[in-house]
């Protein structure tokens, strides 16, 4: 009973994930699809051709987008892992206050934050630069990173790190060989989330990048708003596929690192001892 129920739920869940994707795929090649008909009347490749033609801006912007999101992901992880560790493991005055403050970007609208930071960034010469866009993208994702890593560190504690140190590992060695592999699941989930949020940023990118930094959503959103279904669907399709590939890539890379730092020694001892 419970089994079949969970199977039904699984099917519903997969359908709700796959069907919209299929619809986007259909619309990206559909020229005309009158209302009551089940299949599109006419198919075409205008949308996908526009994106993939040689020298297309879509491809350039796609590369820019990926580059920005990769940097945002790395930088945010570099900030939120130590931050989450401090909040998860150590006691210090004002901890409760800081815990609330770092979540503030979730509560305050990113538009308000963006407008406020815009002025400052102008003065600092960061507007219209990729660096500025990277920095502004970090703002809305900090709370997710901090939240995830605070929880992870509360969960795993610092016992294994203590053990590493007494066995002679320095702080950096401890971090690389023990802390990182231990929190790897958190890094993967936080990293994916950060990447996706950065990858889909529209308003903040435009505000700070000022159109000089052209990311994929900057080209995509006007089509979605103007209702050119074929263009919007084509862009969305490429967006989703690239985002998925990037996520798989992140996970694969991290897992590879993870196994390199632990598995090889293990394989060796298995061979030698059995």
């Amino acid at each position: 009973m419970e089994r079949s129920l969970s199977r039904i739920l699984l099917i519903i869940l997969s359908l709700s994930l796959i069907l919209p994707l299929l619809m986007i795929l259909m619309w990206s090649v559909t020229v005309s699809w009158p209302f009551p008909e089940i299949f599109p009347r006419e198919l075409g490749l205008r949308g996908l051709r526009t994106i993939f033609q040689p020298g297309s801006r879509a491809l350039d912007s796609l590369i820019t987008s990926i580059r920005i999101s990769v940097f945002v992901t790395i930088l945010t992880l570099a900030i939120t892992i130590p931050g989450g560790k401090a909040l998860g493991l150590y006691e210090f005055p004002g901890k409760g206050f800081i815990k609330i403050i770092v979540l503030a970007p979730l509560i305050v609208s990113p538009v308000a934050i963006g407008m406020g930071i815009h002025g400052t960034f102008i003065r600092l010469g960061l507007t219209n630069t990729e660096l500025g866009v990277i920095l502004i993208h970090i703002v809305p994702v900090i709370p997710y990173g901090i939240r995830i890593f605070t929880n992870i560190f509360e969960l795993v504690g610092d016992q294994l790190e203590e053990q590493g140190k007494v066995l002679g590992a320095g702080s950096f060695q401890t971090f690389m060989h023990i802390t990182l592999p231990t929190i790897m699941p958190g890094i993967i989930s936080a990293g994916s989330m950060i990447f996706i949020i950065s990858f889909s940023q529209y308003f903040l990118t435009f505000l700070i990048g000022g159109g000089s930094v052209q990311t994929f959503p900057l080209l995509m959103v006007p089509y979605i708003q103007s209702g050119d279904r074929m263009m919007a669907a084509s862009y969305s399709l490429v967006f989703i596929v690239v985002a998925l590939l990037a996520l798989l890539g992140i996970e694969k890379m991290l897992r590879l690192y993870y196994s390199k730092n632990s598995g090889i020694a293990g394989v060796f001892y298995t061979k030698n001892s059995d």
């Binding site: 570099a78 900030i79 892992i81 130590p82 560790k85 401090a86 150590y90 210090f92 702080s171 950096f172 971090f175 802390t179």
Partner: peptide, 9 residues
């Protein structure tokens, strides 16, 4: 970053 933080804390 983390090393500094760690030791400092």
């Amino acid at each position: 970053m983390s090393i500094i933080w760690d030791n400092a804390m």
